[in-house]
Design a protein around this nucleic acid. Structure first.
Length: 207
DNA sequence: CCCCAGGCCGCGC
DNA sequence: GCGCGGCATGGG
């Protein structure tokens, strides 16, 4: 909690999602926008993801039903700026189909009722994406561990191997509070943007 | 020219 | 169970 308050004092509130929450129009589902963003941002900077989200939004395609119907080539083209566009197009398609099958196309109902294990069973969704979806899409208290979280931990001498060990570290030290997890993770990412990883150097002394 | 980004999967051992 | 390469665009 001391670290959280320190980050909050330094950077202020981050307010991440949703990007277009105020707008209402056909072909737009604010919860689905968050969940799609979780997939699109895998190992990718958010500025690139925004271009893809904006393109989908402009074509009225930010719904599970639209993503399942669109031609895969068009989906690839629209999300191209987000990188890994062939893989991510398939991931969005598979995920959208799960929402159709399990919740009749309601992203909100899907993410509020799905189990974490069921998310992990989907091709293209790993632990960080699942936790981001549950936290930012449904306000469920899952602490998100990403590359920045691990970097910040390392700066404090905390190093693990497994994703779940990092998660346990935070869960056992913080109150179970989705809003806290939400803002904490956003602050960690903000911190990561001006704290670069240690440069890889070759030691000439190790020959 | 280089490295990095809000990971994940498939493969070989 | 693990380490490693591939995936890809845009920015510094």
């Amino acid at each position: 909690m001391r670290l959280y308050h320190e980050l909050l004092a330094t950077y202020g509130r981050q307010h991440w999602w949703p990007v277009h929450s105020g707008r209402k129009r056909p072909g737009f589902d604010p919860v689905f926008e968050v969940l799609a963003g979780c997939i699109l941002t895998q190992n990718t900077s958010w500025t690139n993801v925004e271009k893809a989200i904006d393109a989908l939004y402009a074509h009225g395609l930010l719904t599970p039903v639209a993503i399942t119907k669109i031609r895969i080539e068009k989906l690839r083209r629209l999300i191209r700026p987000a990188g890994y566009f062939k893989q991510k197009a398939l991931k969005l398609r598979i995920f959208s189909r799960a929402i159709m099958d399990d919740a009749k196309g309601s992203a909100r109902r899907y993410i509020h009722t799905v189990s974490r294990d069921d998310l992990l069973a989907l091709w293209g969704i790993g632990p960080e994406t699942a936790d981001s979806m549950l936290l930012y899409g449904a306000n469920r208290p899952e602490f998100v561990i990403d590359t920045y979280t691990k970097r910040l931990c390392a700066r404090h001498g905390i190093v693990y191997d497994a994703y779940d060990d990092y998660k346990t570290y935070f869960r056992t030290r913080l109150p179970v509070d989705a809003q806290l997890y939400n803002e904490f993770h956003a602050l960690v990412v903000r911190w990561g943007k001006d704290h670069h990883p240690p440069r890889k150097t070759v030691s000439t002394l190790s020959i």
